[in-house]
Amino acid sequence: MNDAAAAGTVLVSTAALTQRFGSTVALDALDIQMRPGVTGLVGANGAGKTTLLNALLGLRPPTSGSATVLGLDPRSQGAALRAKVGFAPERDVLPDEMRAVDFVRHLAQVRGLPRSEARTRASDSLWLVGLGEERTRTLGTMSTGQRQRVKLAQAVASDPELVLLDEPTSGLDPTQRTEMLTLIGEISNEHSVSVVLSSHLLEEVERVCDHIVALDAGRLVADGPIAELVGDGEGITLELVDIVEPAGTVEAVESSLRSAGIDVQRTGTVLRLGGAGRDELSDRARDAVADAGARIRRLEARQRTLADLFEASAT
C-alpha cells in the first residue's frame, strides 16, 4: 500500500495552517483537503498560492497549524516528501547554457534516480511534453512555451506521486495555454500523476481541474470537487437587443417580469432572472419580450462560475 492510499486517498490535508510574515497573514487557518486528480489552486496574485505550495513542500515551516502531504509531515519528513513530489516554480529557473535533456536528467538525479535511469527518463519526459525532437537544444534558445514544458518535464521525470505546478501557463499565449492545460490533463489521466495546478486564471482552472482550492488574501474561499462548485446554477440569463424603436423595451420587459413576481437583476440589457423554475422563467421571459416588442439576443440557463464564488466571498 502506498502512502497516498494509507492516507485514505487524501493526498494533501491541512489543519488550521497559518503563515504570517510580520503583520501580514499570508495563510489564514486553512483547512483543506486535496484528492487524486488535478486540483486547481486558484486565487489572485498575492492570495497565498505560492506560500501554500512552499508550506506543502516543507520549504518554510508554518507559523501554526499542520499539513500532511502523501501521508508525510513536511516539517519533519521534508526530504522524504520532496523525493516523491515534483515541483515546477513560477519563476524562470532554467540555466540558458544547459541542454534540455541534461537539465531534466540532472534534476531527476537530484530527486534520487540512478544516473542511467535518470538519463532514460529525461528523454521520455521530454517526449511526453512534446519536446522529444528538441531535447538536445540549449535552454537559452527555447521559446517561453518550450521552457514551460521543460519545467513540466523536470517535475515529472522522477515519476512523482504528486506534482505541484506554480502558474505553469505564465507567459503563454492562448494557444500555448490550451496545449499546456491539455498536457497537464493527460499526465494526470494517463499516467496517474496527481497535480496541483496553481493559477490566477479561473477559466483555465475550470477547464482542467477535478477539484479546486480557492484562496483570497490567504483565506479559504472554496474547497471541493469542481462539479459541485461550478456548473448549472439557478435561474436564467436573458440578454436583449438594445433597440431604438419601440423605445424602452428593456425597461418594459423588466417591469413586466417584476410584476409577475420574478426576481430580476438588471445590468444594461442583461437581465438575470430567478425566483422560479427554469421552465416558468423561460415562459415568463418569452411572454414579456413578446408583449414589449423586444428582441432577444441570448436566453440561457445561468452557469455558476468560480468568479461567482469569489464574488460571494467578497460580499
Binding site: L57, L59, G78, A79, A80, R82, A83, V85, F87, P89, R91, V93, L107, V110, R111, G112, Q154
Partner: peptide, 9 residues
C-alpha cells in the same frame, strides 16, 4: 529554489 524543492536542504 528548484534545488531546495528536492531532497536537498
Amino acid at each position: 529554489s528548484l534545488y531546495l524543492s528536492t531532497p536537498l536542504r
